[in-house]
Structure formats: C-alpha cells, structure tokens
C-alpha cells in the first residue's frame, strides 16, 4: 500500500518508460482517486462555480428572471455610496470588536482560572460555560428578546431592583440595541473560546509554571508573560474564526431585531443587508453579489492584518 513516490515526476521531458510508470501508479491507486473524488466534484459544483459566477454577476444588473445587463462597476459604486451599507458595516464591526473583548479576554481568563488548579470541579464550570454553544441561535435569541423586555424583562427587573432606571433595549433611539446584541453574542461564544484556550493551555508544560512560581511570579504575571505569548497561535486561530463569524453574523440580530435591524437600523449587520437585497428580501442579484465580494475582501484583509500583526511580534 505504501509505495515509493516516483522521483522523476518533475524533471525534464519524460521518457516513455517514465510516462508508463506514472500511468501504472495512477492505475494502481485508482481507488484512492475514487475516495477523494466526491470532495472535488462537490467543491467545483457548490463552491468554486458559485464564487466565480458571483464575481461575474456582480458586474451586471440582474433580477434573476429577465436578461442580465452589464453595468460595469456601478454595483460597487452604488454599494460604497449607500449610507445604509456603511451603517451596517459600522454596526457589524462595533458588535464584533466589543463582544470580542469579552469573548477573547473573558475566555482566556476563565480558561486560565480553570486550568490553574486553584478551584475545584473545573469540569462542571466548563460544561456550564459551554451550554450556550449547543443551543440553537434562534431559540436563544427569542429568550434574550424576552430577557431584554422593557416592562417585564428580567434584566430590567434586576436593574430596577438595584436602583437603576429601566432601559428601553429595543426602542428609544436604538442606542441600546447593539449593546443587547453584544451581551447575547458574548454569552453564546465565550465558552467556545474558553474550551479552545484550555486545550491550548494543556499543551504548555507544567514545568514552566512551576519554575515561574519558584521565581516568585504572581498569577497575573504568569498569565500575561507566559500563557498569552505561548498561546499566540491558538489566539490567532480564534481571531481569524471570529473575524469570519462576525462578518457572517446574521441569525441573532435577525431574530432579535428583524431584517431591517430594528430601531433606526441599529441592529443591522452586513449579512442582513446582503440577504435583504437578495435572495431573501428583494431580487437585486447583481448588487447583492457585489456586496458579497466586498464582504469577502474585508474578511481577507482583516485576517491578513491579524496574521501580520501576530507574526511580527514573534
């Protein structure tokens, strides 16, 4: 089964015997090609083709039914001059950055505490923190909508009990909509990041910690000087995942605020903006494709920045 790879594959023009050797190798391993074929077939149909076609469509005016009309980059111009798109982008980035203060930093701190053997029963806490991850985003959003209710919501009740004014989370001028979404988003994801960091921390040798403690380092010092630098690759991975997740953020704000993002579009994310153009709301297929490509460019850019900034510190 384990065959030696022909070492003449890429050197100069092939002789007849080399060609027949290659052909024999292919024939001998034909079952392997059968095994991996489904991926490439499905990828070309459902992955590659839509992405290429999407780029093509983004230069056309098209409602999905009548003939396509080439309009050059006008879709992109229209998109980038639409203040609603910028608002959606601003909302998305705002929600992404502020929720990830809790998700990343909170996840790191929780993982550190549970990994430090300072507390008993870490597995119970781990399980509890992970609960939101296995919950349907729709079900969770509906519960949070009730939790943030104006008159009978549990959160306003708590605020009033402690002596604060109640907050009109969904109404008013909409200034609290994003905060509510951030709270829910953090609630859902902090456990996931925590479990990832925990497994990363388990890869760090105990000796390093012990040596640091003998040298008189405090836990805060260990956390910032040892754990975080050693976890850099893991943190980078979660950062890239988070970037993609944030740009694709749809279900929670959609259920919480509706397709238009609620009061003054304060909960509108770019993904909601896109799907409202096509295919869920209207039929602006070309315009929505342009929007999808701009979002991808943003994801790529932020991921590159993440990788660069993490690479330089090494």
């Amino acid at each position: 089964m384990i065959q030696s790879k022909p070492n003449t594959l890429n050197t100069g023009p092939r002789t007849r015997s080399q060609r027949s050797y290659l052909w024999n190798e292919i024939k001998r391993n034909k079952v392997a090609y059968v095994y991996i074929a489904p991926f490439y077939i499905l990828f070309i149909i459902f992955g590659l083709f839509p992405i290429v076609a999407g780029f093509f469509i983004s230069f056309f005016n098209w409602d999905g039914v009548s003939a396509m009309k080439f309009i050059g980059i006008r879709n992109y111009v229209r998109l980038l001059t639409d203040s609603l798109f910028w608002k959606a982008l601003y909302n998305t980035i705002y929600i992404g950055i502020f929720s990830h203060i809790f998700i990343l930093f909170g996840g790191l701190v929780l993982a550190y505490i549970l990994n430090s053997k300072l507390v008993k029963y870490p597995n119970i806490f781990k399980t509890i923190y992970f609960l939101p991850m296995i919950t349907s985003a729709v079900a969770a959003s509906i519960v949070f909508q009730a939790l943030f209710g104006l008159n009978a919501g549990l959160i306003n009740f708590m605020l009033q009990t402690v002596g604060f004014e109640k907050i009109d989370w969904w109404g008013g001028t909409g200034q609290y909509v994003k905060i509510a979404i951030i709270i829910m988003f953090s609630w859902k994801w902090v456990g996931w990041n925590m479990v990832i960091y925990l497994s990363g921390m388990q890869g760090i040798s105990e000796d390093i910690y012990e040596a640091a403690i003998i040298d008189g380092a405090s836990h805060t010092q260990i956390f910032f000087r040892i754990t975080i630098p050693l976890l850099k690759p893991v943190i980078l991975f979660t950062l890239i995942q988070s970037t993609i997740g944030t740009i694709n953020l749809f279900t929670e704000p959609f259920v919480l605020t509706g397709l238009k993002g609620g009061t003054a579009n304060q909960g509108l994310t770019v993904m909601m903006y896109l799907l409202d153009r096509a295919p869920y709301g209207n039929n602006l297929y070309g315009y929505a494709s342009a929007c999808a490509y701009v979002l991808c460019a943003i994801i790529m850019m932020v991921s590159l920045i993440n990788m660069k900034s993490f690479g330089e510190k090494e």
Partner: peptide
Amino acid sequence: ILLATMMIPWTAGIIPWFFM
C-alpha cells in the same frame, strides 16, 4: 488545493449558490 479551499469565504458565492 483541499487546504486552500478552507481559506475561501463561502459568502462570496451565496447569490449564485441560491440561484443554482
């Protein structure tokens, strides 16, 4: 190639995907 496909954000093709 397989690894590289993991880097592509699938959102880019959502409109043709739906049309398909």
